[in-house]
Write a protein that binds this DNA or RNA. Structure first.
Lengths: 197, 197
DNA sequence: GCATCCTCCTAATCATGTTAGGCACTCCTA
DNA sequence: TAGGAGTGCCTAACATGATTAGGAGGATGC
């Protein structure tokens, strides 16, 4: 029967093991790159053999899926932390804050960024459930910008595309540097100016 | 000895076979996606067995390498064709022209775009020789924009980052559609305005 | 005509994701 | 408290992909 203490203990353990596996996958990704995230490598870190992971995940992509959800959940948290620390007082403030926070969040961990951009992993498509945190982040952003009067979908699309473009350029052309990071503030100012006609 | 007719005939045949292989790889990429570009699949299209490809390329990545060079060479050609057809009369013209040309060039073939963005293929790094056409395209762009007075490196960096961001967003969020394509002209106008202070 | 080289082949190896099947331990219940 | 169900891990094996080893056959050059 569901809801009994032992049942809870069991699902708790099960959940803990899943977390352990996903955390191990994150370690491998950060230490050796996303390409090195192999079932054997992950299993070894948790003291298992590769096939045993199938007791917890239906496939390797299911692990990616959990990582994808992790990344966007963390991203949302980073955004909320940033706005708690420096509550934006104007649209310009807000646009700088969210752009810079997202930029730094992405650039600090290439593997995580690659995961968040599902396109970079051939054949991987996040499940609707795992996609939810990503949608939530975007919804939150829309909500915040709406309080400053920006509600048009295209305005937000262009905003995110610009920030994404700078992140991409940074990682592709100057990883570890800050060449495009230095352009970010200028780009945002330009964009906010254009919104004010 | 080098330079004899027979030697030329030999290297010609050799070159032709290399081309055939790379073309076959392009076919597979376009028809079935980059992930399906396997040595067996490529070899089958040229009537060979997979190991035989090693007589012409040192590795699968070497084939990617040739494709990478192809893509950027074509990209440069597309740019020159576009400017021949509609010679830009102003900075604004030019920025619209190159952005739209590049955007359309990328969006029309996802596999090609993934190749041009080497980051999307785990472990693949283009060789300096294959990188040359990519550098040439950027040099050409710099040269053209310079004739309209834009010479600051950061200005061109931001320009390419914005265009790249829109392409990325288009392919990631609305493949086959034109949602971000419609934002492109507006983005470029905004950017040119910002250059004119 | 004979030696050489070049291209392609088959067979085999290695890495990876995945499936099959079995053993042991836990936990519930009679 | 003994047995039975279910769970979680294991080993063995398989499929597919890149790659290497080694050899056969034909074109090329003397």
């Amino acid at each position: 029967m569901l809801g009994t203490p032992s049942r809870n203990r069991q699902t708790e353990r099960r959940e803990a093991t899943r977390r352990e596996i996903v955390d191990a996958a994150w370690e491998v990704a950060r230490d050796e790159g996303l390409a090195q995230v192999t079932l054997r490598a992950v299993a070894e870190r948790v003291g298992m053999r590769a096939p045993s992971l199938y007791s917890h995940f239906a496939s390797k992509h299911a692990i990616y899926d959990a990582m994808f959800a992790d990344a966007w959940t963390e991203c949302g948290r980073a955004g909320r932390e940033a706005e708690a620390k420096h509550p934006p007082q104007s649209l310009r403030d807000a646009m700088h804050l969210y752009a810079a926070t997202f930029f730094d969040f992405c650039v600090v961990d290439l593997a995580r960024f690659q995961l968040m951009n599902q396109r970079t992993i051939p054949g991987f498509e996040p499940s609707p459930e795992s996609y939810a945190p990503a949608v939530a982040v975007l919804d939150e952003l829309r909500d915040r910008l709406a309080t400053f009067g920006v509600t048009r979908l295209e305005d937000i699309d262009l905003y995110t595309a610009i920030v994404g473009g700078l992140i991409d350029a940074q990682l592709a052309n100057d990883p570890g540097g800050d060449r495009w990071r230095r352009l970010l503030d200028h780009a945002i100012d330009m964009y906010v100016d254009s919104l004010n006609h």
